[in-house]
Design a protein around this nucleic acid. Structure first.
Lengths: 290, 290
DNA sequence: ATCCATTGGTGCATTTTTACACCACTAGAT
DNA sequence: ATCTAGTGGTGTAAAAATGCACCAATGGAT
């Protein structure tokens, strides 16, 4: 094959199943994918994909090329990580992926401080609730609450974070029982176990939103009640736990990196720094400051 | 890296050491290589090659990318061989590399006959004295006289071919001793052991040429004497061995293919066919028909 | 000192690739 | 039957990549 980038094309089309979604994976126009596939299959490679309803599927020949493409991707990703792992001092780029809530509340000042302590480390924060793929260098490190981290990643398993039920001080006095409302999150709308275990399990949901920061502001504005992480709420003097509210344990916090990066000095420095910062806030995270 | 074809660029530049020779390897203009390298190094890959007298040399980072590129090449070549190995019947393409002399004299009719016997096998003959690289699919099979075949290739080791000293009938009668001349080949000009063991070891060389076919025609035209393969000369009624000439043993003939192809039906068919054809001509090849 | 064969670099023209816009088709939901 | 959200395909314009031609530099041979 005269252009090894065709292996990326093959992989994208295999993984996504259609020209348009392969194009999204590759960051190009679907007509580009269509034409490159046609050119590729007109050459010595032969027919690699057959058209099925809704898209394309590899032929037997194509499946072998997909396998080769997967091997190539592994090599390209390893090479990229090796490049990112380079460096013998506290300098160079690091990409850190973490939940918005942790970035904006729990570690907001610590991250700013890190930037001052290590001015030669170029820290990029990616706020995301998705689990960044460290194999493909979407990030160098991640902080996550999870019960099932990827087995091959390395780092620290810390402790679980706690949640409880909160409202703004004065909300209960100012709001007749029949007008009290819950502020939910988009992904746990249908799972109302958290509401059943709350002090006001019968109150309806005002609305739900995916943005936890927006919900936090709604809570602070007294628009309703919410179950939220203690590390977000317990530092707010205007917020109080609902009477009778208990803390419940969420998932364990992890700070993880890729095995290829674990020995890189600046990665070790950030890993140690973040773990220390989280451990220092353990009582807050576990809901034990009140 | 957003274009895996850059790995081919890296490999070519590493192997050849300069923009211009890398361009020749890749089949593009040297300005293209220059620009692609500049673009690549301006991106996240960093500086991969440093300029030295006469060309470029990989940096430490670049050496790692070279290693990755070598791994990718291995995968690409294996994928290509797997594609060529596909097929369960006597059909499909085969590229056969063999010396011109064998193609034009020894197996000329057999190859034509094979085309008739297996019309669905697309046989391509590459006449060459170089040893085609089967790893990179320069050919699917080779016939060679050699004493050191590549260890990893598979096939048959047959028997050695014989050579002797010849002239056109009547040449000796028509040519006074002081005007007798040798027709040499380009690659054995300096090695005149073959002349010392000939019946007329003192005769000078008329000229040398790389083209064995041309020399054969010169021999037939009575321009001089030559040491040539018996399978070329013994079938010519107008040629005779020089009085007192002995046969000497050349290298063994091999018929080889790549291990990944050895089980492909059409490769096995051609392998069997060529070996049978050569074995059938063993007495001619060993110089024992006269 | 001169010549020659290599090298790297670059302006401009050409070619190739890609994006854009649009069309038609399909399948599922209503 | 209609609507919607996907799909593949293609003509044309735009962008990118490449080749060509040329220049200057370098190092070895004479």
């Amino acid at each position: 094959m005269d252009d090894w980038d065709n292996y990326r094309l093959i992989l994208a089309l295999h993984r996504s199943g259609s020209l348009r979604s392969a194009a999204r994976l590759l960051g190009v126009n679907h007509s580009t994918v269509s034409r490159r596939l046609a050119t590729l299959q007109a050459g010595s490679a032969g027919i690699l994909f057959e058209q099925v309803a809704g898209g394309y599927r590899p032929t037997e020949t194509g499946a072998k090329m997909v396998s080769a493409a997967e091997d190539m991707e592994e090599i390209a990703q390893r090479a990229e990580r090796q490049q990112r792992a380079a460096g013998s001092a506290d300098k160079g780029p690091i990409t850190l992926s973490l939940p918005e809530a942790i970035g904006q509340f729990l570690l907001f000042e610590d991250i700013g401080e890190f930037g001052k302590l290590y001015p030669d480390i170029d820290l990029t924060i990616i706020s995301s609730y998705g689990f960044a793929n460290l194999d493909r260098s979407e990030a160098d490190m991640v902080i996550r609450g999870t019960d099932k981290p990827s087995d091959h990643l390395v780092g620290r398993r810390l402790f679980p974070y706690a949640l409880s039920h909160y409202c703004k001080r004065g909300y209960l006095d100012d709001t007749p029982p029949e007008k009290r409302r819950w502020l939910a999150t988009a992904h746990n709308w249908s799972q109302d176990e958290w509401k059943k275990t709350s002090p006001f399990s019968d109150a309806p949901i005002l609305y739900a939103m995916s943005d936890l920061t927006m919900r936090h502001k709604a809570l602070l504005a007294g628009q309703g009640m919410a179950r939220t992480a203690c590390y977000m709420a317990d530092t707010e003097p205007d917020l109080m736990r609902l009477p009778g509210a208990k803390t419940v344990t969420g998932q364990h916090l992890w700070v993880l990196t890729h095995p290829d990066l674990k020995d890189t000095p600046r990665i070790k420095t950030l890993m140690r720094y973040l773990c220390d910062a989280l451990i220092a806030k353990r009582t807050l995270i576990e809901g034990k400051t009140r």
